[in-house]
Design a protein around this nucleic acid. Structure first.
Lengths: 226, 226
DNA sequence: GCATCTTGCATTGTTGACAATCCATGGTGT
DNA sequence: ACACCATGGATTGTCAACAATGCAAGATGC
């Protein structure tokens, strides 16, 4: 008998999730100053749980809080976004290497199947970059957990990705990039399937490096203002 | 006129600091289950601020919380400690590289002076590994902030170091290691002074790799049980 | 007319009481 | 005697009122 494992979500947890997604999808814009009472009415909470959630969000760096002065959503500059990608590069490189060493054969097959479905999506929904963005997230998510490195996965999934996703809805990937990214994903998985950790790390680093350059280019062209 | 910048610390901040240091120095042992009221009386707080602090600590991974069942200090296994060092390796490698590119000349001079004082300490207090441990922390701290990568510094200083320090008081570094570590530090700073980011990264990675192997060895020898 | 100080208001921080949940102990039935 | 269920106690989660602090608007002096 599998236990239900409902483990009654506490209000603070709900508040945390709500706020986090609200920030990530841009419902709460970066730099926006928000009052506690306003948030309470908006999410049907009382201030107790809300404050606990705010504390958690703050320690994760999604919002900043000055005593008696209020709380506002963090706004990362273009430079900081680039720095985020530099961090991703080394951390996900490590994740890929450890994933190559530790993922089960079944997980790898699943990953390959995932890429197949992504390919289909890209072909069918030509130009619909959204799927690719979600797919990209899915891919990196699996590698992070596949590393079997608890803290690494926690830092990637709990900290970095949320900050990156904050800006994803503005970063409509450029025309040819989804196809290219898929190819890079394919090669990474190939390396993992061959249990070649060193190669997987190298390819992953290059993959994220390319994504970073893509963004950097757009910022310089003025296409993307942050 | 430099502003006082007292910015009234809130009770929750105090609570957070108190608990964090209590956990780090081992006053609250890993795995120990702790009640809220007990903590309140121990640190002279009320439950409101305490709970907010607990939330923050939880999201940083220093303690785990099950709804209605209490909170206990996280206990990291030997394997997880090793994994922590793997993460440090890549992240601090990046920090060293960026520090080499961005630290001011003054900061570098300060860093060199710091190493000089460490050397003195090691010579004078032969065997007193504590200073070395603190010194080691100081060194890595400066490099992290010197990287000018806000998020990177935040992740290193706010997450990883605290977890590593939890176990530092047990990891009395072995006999010859302080001297060797100091030499490694020297070479890293040298590379930074020459603005050779690539070399700084390489040396830092090797430095942390050596520390990891040192711990791994001790665990295998059974000297260190976690 | 401009700057500075003061006062009032709005917002955050804190507190203690109340409600909901879990754990353990003791009882009962088989 | 063992297992299961029920009840009591303790602990956590939640709430609403109170206190403290910062911010802004208005008044006053230069």
């Amino acid at each position: 008998m599998s236990q239900p494992v409902i483990q009654s979500l506490t209000r603070a947890d709900e508040a945390f999730d709500c706020l986090q997604t609200a920030i990530v999808i841009g419902d709460l814009a970066p730099g926006e100053k928000i009052g506690e009472v306003e948030l309470c009415s908006r999410f049907n909470l009382t201030r107790g749980p809300l404050r606990e959630a705010l504390g958690r969000l703050e320690s994760r760096g999604l919002l900043v809080r000055r005593p008696h002065a209020g709380v506002k959503v963090v706004s990362v500059s273009a430079d900081e976004l680039i720095e985020l990608y530099r961090i991703r590069e080394v951390m996900e490189g490590l994740a890929a290497r450890q994933a190559a060493e530790r993922m089960t054969d079944e997980e790898i097959r699943d990953l390959q199947a995932t890429l197949d479905s992504h390919e289909k999506m890209i072909e069918e929904a030509q130009g619909q970059a959204y799927y690719q963005a979600e797919g990209d997230y899915d891919f990196h998510h699996r590698i992070a957990t596949g590393s079997r490195n608890t803290k690494l996965a926690q830092m990637l999934l709990g900290d970095l990705y949320y900050m990156v996703r904050m800006y994803r809805y503005r970063l409509s990937t450029s025309a040819g990039r989804p196809h290219m990214a898929l190819g890079e994903h394919r090669r990474i998985v190939e390396a993992i399937a061959q249990r070649d950790g060193e190669l997987a790390e190298f390819l992953m680093k290059r993959h994220i490096n390319a994504a970073r350059q893509n963004i950097e280019q757009k910022i310089q062209q003025g296409v993307l203002t942050i």
